[in-house]
Design a protein around this nucleic acid. Structure first.
Lengths: 216, 216, 216, 216
DNA sequence: GTGTAAGCGAGACGGTACGTCAAGTCTTCCG
DNA sequence: CGGAAGACTTGACGTACCGTCTCGCTTACAC
C-alpha cells in the first residue's frame, strides 16, 4: 500500500518534501499518510465496524482533531485511502484485440472486487453509499465515473479499430458486461470465476457478431 | 406496509387476538408488530443511521429489553420487517410467454429495488451484508435464495414449455439478466428505465435465437 | 468521610437498603457514594484542577454517564460531597457562657477553614462561586445560609440568657467576628492562630461591655 | 480601562512609541497592551471561564505564541492586566483625620471590590489563588502586600499624628476593619453599604477610646 | 547597505477533557 | 413469565483549548 506523495485537496500536484509537523505551509504529509494507512489497515483487520475515528487516531499516532481538520467522516478517510491505492490495483491492458482485452479485464475486475484489499474497501464504500446519498454522490464523482470510463475503454478502443460498428450505446453495453460481476460480488456472494467472466464476454461477442477466440 | 397479524414462529396459523402486555402465554404479538413497524418507519424517515434500538423502542412504545429478548441486532429487526413486507411487493406473473414474463418481471424488479419502501430496506440490508459476513449468510438463506428462485422462475417455466433448449445454465443466464439491474441500482445509481430492462431481455432472446416481440 | 445514606434529591429522607445497581427504584446508592468520595479524594490529592468528570468516573469505577445523570457539573458533585462531610467537622458547642462559646467556636472555625479536608473543599467551592453566580446562589442556599445560622448561634443563646442587650444587629455583629477569620484564610493566607481569634472575641466583648475571662 | 503605555519590566519608565511588529529590540508594546485589554474585556464580558488563551489571542489579534512568550498562564495575563488598572481605581485619601480617612477608605474599598471592573478581576484572581498556591504566593507578593500597606496607611498616619497610642498591632487591627468587608463580598455576597462600613469604623474608634464624628 | 537575528501572525500538531449518544445488560414490579 | 421502566458500564462521538512547534515576514541594529 505504497502511497504517492500528493495532497488530497489538489490531487496530482507534486509537492516539495515535507519534513514539518504543522506550520503555515499547511498540513503534515506524514500525518496524512499515517491516517490513510491506519484507516485501511483497520478495515482489513477488523471490518467496517472496527474503523472508528478514535481507532484511526490511536493507530496512526495522530490527534483526533487532526483527522477532523481534514476529513469530516471516517468514510471520507476511507475514500481517500481507497483512491490512493486503487490506481495500482486495477489497470486496463491493451492487447489490440477486443476479446482478449475484455477477458483479461473482467478477470481482473472480478479479482479486484472480491479478493484484493482495495476491493474490500470498495465494498465497504459502496455499502456505505447505500446509507448516505451525499456520500454516494461524492463517491461517484470521485471514483465511479472514472471507473466507468475505464470499464468502457476496451469497447472504445475496439470502436476506433473498427471491430465494433459505430452507434453503439457503450454505457448500456458496458453495464451488461460489468453488471453481473458486481451483482455476484455484492449480492449473491458467489465466487466469480473465469468461466463466469468468459461467458459474459462470449455473450457480448456473439451479440455483436464476433467470434470468440480459443481459450487462453 | 400493512402487516398481517401473525407470529413469526407459526406463520399462517390463525390465533386468537392477543392484546396482552405481559402474560404467561408467550410473546406479545402487539409488541412484535410495533417493533417491526417502528423499525422500517424509522428507516424510511431517517435512513439507516437513524435506526437505533433505542429509537425503535421509544417509537414502538416498547422496552428495550423486549427487543433484545427476540432479536439480537437492529439489522435482525429490519430483516424481519423486510421479510414480512416483501412478499406483497414483488411477485412473478405468468403470461405463458417468456418474452412478456421477462419484460414484466425486470420492470417490476427495477421498480422494487429503486422505488419501493421495501426496496429501501433491501438496499440497507444488502449494504449491511457487505460489512457483516454472518449477517450476509443469514440474509441469503432467509431471503436471497428464495429471491433467486423467483428470478429464475420465468426461465424455468419457458424450459418446461419448450421455449428454451434444455441444458442451459439457468443460474448464469439469470445473473446476466438481473445483474445489470442490481448494478445500476446499487453501484451507479442511475435510473433503471424500461429501455434498459427491455434491452436486457432482447439481448437474452437474441442470444437464444428467439425473436423479440413488438413493444408493448 | 463516612456518609449518611440519603438521596440528594430528598435530603434527610430515610430510604430502604439499596442493594440494586440500577432499576426502577432509582439510583444506585453505591455509585452515588463512590462518586462523592472520589471527588473529594481527588480534590485533596490533586487540587481543584485535578478534579475532572473523567477522573472522578475512573476513580469511582463508575460510568461518566452515571455522573451526568445526577449532577451537571463537577462543582455540583463537590458541593454534595462537601455537604455530607461538613456536618461532622464543624459543630457549635454550648458552654452556657458567651465568651467561652465564642472562643471555642472561632478556634474551630479557623481550624476547619484552614486545616481540615472539608475546609479545602469549602475553599474550592467559595472560589468557584466567584466565577459562577448561579453556583454562588446555589451554594449559599444549600450551605452558607445554614452556616451563618450556626455562626450566629452563640450570640442568640447569649441574648436568651440575657448576656447581651436586645435589639442587637446580630448579622452585623457576626460578620465582625467571622469576617476577619475568612479574610485571613481566603485573602492573606496568613495562619489564623488562637491569639488572633481570641483578640476578635475580646474586642467583641469589650464593645458590649463584657469582661474577657482569663485565658484557658 | 485606559492603560498607560508602559512595559511590565520597567514600570513607569517612559519609552518611545513602538508600533513595530517584530524586531530585535524587544517586545511589541502594542501586542502587550492588546493582550491585557483582551483578557480583561473577556473576563468582564464572559466571566472567568470565558477567558482562554485562544480567545485572548483571537480578540487581541495576536498569535498564541506571542502570549506564551511573555506569560505562562492566563491568570498571569489577568494579573498583569489587573495590576495596571488597579492603581487608578483605589487610592487612599488623607484628610488629616482618622475617622474620616477610615470611613472614606472603607466605602471606596467596598465599592472597588463589589462594583468596579477591577474588582471583578480581583475576585477572579483571589478565587484562582484558592486553587493554585504558587499563584497565590505570586499574587500576594505582587499585589496583596502592597494593598495591605495601603489598608494600613490611615492607621499609620494616625499613629504619627498621635491619634492612636503606640504599640498597637496594626496588622490585626487592619484585619478587623477590612476582614468583614472582604467576607461579605467574597462569601455571603451581600451588599456592603455605607451603614455596614461606618459601623466597622465606629467599633474601631470605640475600641480605642475615640469618638465617632457626626455622619457626613 | 546589507545581512542577521529577534519578535511577530499564522496555524498545524499531539493531547486531555468535555458533554452526548447509543449499545447491550441488569434488576425490579406489574398484570 | 412477558413486558415496561429505567439505571448501569462501555466506548465512540465531535468539539474546545491546551501548550508546542515551524514557518516566512518585518524590522533595526551591527558590520
Amino acid at each position: 500500500m505504497a502511497r504517492a506523495t500528493q495532497t488530497t485537496g489538489t490531487p496530482g500536484t507534486g509537492r516539495p518534501a515535507a519534513r514539518h509537523h504543522g506550520n503555515r505551509h499547511g498540513r503534515s504529509e506524514q500525518a496524512r499518510l499515517a491516517v490513510l494507512n491506519a484507516a485501511d489497515d483497520l478495515l482489513v483487520e477488523k471490518g467496517f465496524a472496527g474503523v472508528t475515528m478514535e481507532g484511526i487516531a490511536t493507530r496512526a499516532g495522530v490527534a483526533k482533531q487532526t483527522i477532523y481538520r481534514w476529513w469530516s467522516t471516517k468514510t471520507g478517510v476511507l475514500m481517500d485511502a481507497f483512491l490512493q491505492d486503487v490506481a495500482e490495483d486495477l489497470t486496463v491492458r491493451d492487447h489490440g484485440d477486443l476479446a482478449r482485452d475484455l477477458r483479461t479485464y473482467l478477470r481482473e475486475l472480478a479479482w479486484f472486487l472480491s479478493s484484493s484489499d482495495s476491493g474490500a474497501v470498495f465494498r465497504a464504500l459502496i455499502a456505505h453509499a447505500q446509507h448516505d446519498p451525499a456520500f454516494a454522490e461524492d463517491f461517484r464523482s470521485r471514483y465511479l465515473d472514472d471507473q466507468r470510463g475505464r470499464d468502457r475503454l476496451p469497447l472504445e478502443r475496439a470502436l476506433e479499430r473498427g471491430e465494433l460498428v459505430p452507434g453503439l450505446d457503450l454505457a448500456a453495453e458496458t453495464d451488461q458486461l460489468m453488471g453481473p460481476v458486481y451483482y455476484r460480488v455484492l449480492v449473491t456472494g458467489e465466487p466469480v470465476g473465469q468461466e463466469f467472466t468468459d461467458r459474459l464476454v462470449d455473450a457480448f461477442l456473439h451479440r455483436h457478431g464476433l467470434t470468440a477466440p480459443a481459450k487462453d
